[in-house]
Design a protein around this nucleic acid. Structure first.
Lengths: 323, 323
DNA sequence: TTGAAAGCGTTACCAA
DNA sequence: TTGGTAACGCTTTCAA
């Protein structure tokens, strides 16, 4: 492997000049440039990325922290990676599997300057601890955080959930249950708040057993059918789901058990993923890819000490066959 | 931010000794170590990752190259990231959106020593060009390549597809069509070969119009229904799909058009993803997560100049409601 | 337009 | 067990 020194010697110029060529400095004689470029090509030269990063003090790498990547996050990941790449940044994926210690690797890598910034999709560590890493570099989050230092690009779920609750009520359903995600996450709290507000507004009952939390996956959705529809008497006639995966599981298992959807049970998903489209599930459209872009540009702005204008985004309900 | 020099000065030792503490060298006096560790803690010291990488000549980063991440690749990505992380490696995701120039970024980063190795999920560049990057570091591929230098951890699709064809024939279907992926990929060729071999063995007809290629997504699958079932007379009674997404689209649209599955049309997916399970699609189980592990350990072996033992893997057909 | 030299923050070899 | 010092490969002043 050749390096700057060799190129410089062979070309008969100094390392400084070679470096200028590399960085497209205008203060280089065109002939000099050509000569140096020719020698670079001849020696199959490529600048060492680590040396550049060390010298410049920036890696052009951004870490992405998540428990694990699932279908719901996929548009976020793809959109973020794509946007970052367009701006010269690479994305490093850190998954923790829910292990707090492993998750800290991402934050430690920010501290060690392996990455210039961090985007959190989900995180399991204490928010206070996470916040203490803000001094090492910009951090933004998709998951909403309880920290003023860490901005979230997620939208206030209150508005989205409200759309869902009002929709099923408008369709004539009255016994509305919730399949929610992480028990004490802000998303869950906002959704619950929206639910209770709208239900109260319509003077509808809010039985405590009808708001389940900790429900994330297709399997969870499947299991839910048994749990929710147990009591033959007072059972819900509509379920709002944490995401489309849950809705898909619920729909599938309900059909298996001969529960008619949407006649006996309405199902509303969240995020409006491809899955919802395929299965014909009514879902609340969550502009995830756009949120990922917002996340990247927020980070880029902080890295470059510029103001960032966030794209304004909106929820939208897409009615399909399950309501 | 503090650095080695400051720690050394404050502790009253040399940089060399501080470095030894950092790297858990046994040749350090316990008292010295404690003193140095205490000062590190006090100054909130963390070694600079770039400096370490530059000095060691290794980044402990592996690049992952793909057009874009979809549901089918998800288990591969998650498993690879997880396995890499367990071994101290980070994963950088490079997506190209099918743009050959952008895809080269991943390979250029191998050349620039930003990553120590590369795993290809899919790649669109000419295989010859890709092969020329092998001299810069280990490369393995999921997608099978036409290059002896780049090993593939994918399994020979012949065996898997054969399972599918034999299964539908065993179920009594005789007019069997294919929805295949990338036209000239080795996967597609192997599958076609298996298809033709088994069909011939059973003396079944192989109409040319029944082997479509370039079919990848849910939408593609949906579109396929119209195309395949057009001719009211000689239409297929079974379709083997490129993956579960296609199968899902096909199933969904078939039902919409009142085509009875599996009575009038059998559908077989590929990969046996969660989606196949949810929708009850018969699918060929492809141990993707295990292939990702094989990929990582293959790379690790090459990086450490050790022999690697690959896990032996097998396809398996999972019968569900679509056949 | 060019060059010399001092960083950037480690590691690793050779002595002591 | 410790220290001195030369790598690692590039960028960035400051002068010329």
């Amino acid at each position: 492997m050749s390096n700057l020194d060799q190129i410089a010697k062979l070309a008969g110029f100094s390392k400084a000049t070679v470096s200028r060529v590399l960085n497209h400095s205008p203060h280089v004689n065109p002939e000099t440039r050509d000569r140096i470029l020719a020698i670079m090509k001849e020696l199959d030269y490529a600048p060492n990325g680590n040396a550049v990063s060390l010298s410049k003090g920036r890696t052009l790498q951004i870490g992405m922290c998540a428990e694990g990547i699932n279908e719901v996050m996929l548009p976020f990941l793809n959109s973020f990676v794509e946007t970052a790449s367009q701006n010269g940044y690479q994305t490093i994926v850190y998954t923790s599997g829910g292990d707090a210690k492993k998750e800290l690797k991402a934050f430690e890598d920010l501290r060690r300057k392996r990455v210039d910034a961090l985007v959190i999709i989900t995180c399991v560590n204490d928010h206070g601890l996470i916040g203490s890493y803000c001094k090492y570099g910009p951090i933004v989050s998709w998951q909403r955080m309880r920290l003023p230092e860490i901005l979230s690009v997620a939208m206030n779920q209150y508005d989205g959930y409200k759309l869902g609750v009002e929709h099923v009520i408008g369709q004539g359903y009255t016994r509305i249950a919730n399949a929610l995600g992480r028990p004490s996450s802000m998303n869950t709290l906002s959704r619950l708040e929206a639910y209770e507000d709208i239900m109260n507004k319509h003077s509808l009952a809010v039985p405590p057993g009808w708001s389940r939390t900790g429900i994330y996956s297709i399997r969870d959705g499947e299991r839910l059918v048994g749990e929710l529809l147990q009591g033959a008497k007072e059972r819900p006639d509509a379920v709002l789901c944490a995401n489309d995966l849950v809705a898909a599981g619920l729909l599938n298992e309900a059909r298996r058990q001969q529960v008619k959807v949407p006649e006996e049970l309405a199902i509303v998903g969240f995020d409006n993923t491809e899955l919802a489209h395929t299965l014909g599930i009514t879902s609340i459209d969550n502009p995830i890819a756009a949120q990922a872009q917002n996340a990247f540009y927020l980070l880029l702005g902080k890295l470059n000490h510029e103001e960032t204008v966030q794209k304004k985004l909106q929820f939208r309900l897409v009615k399909r066959a399950t309501t």
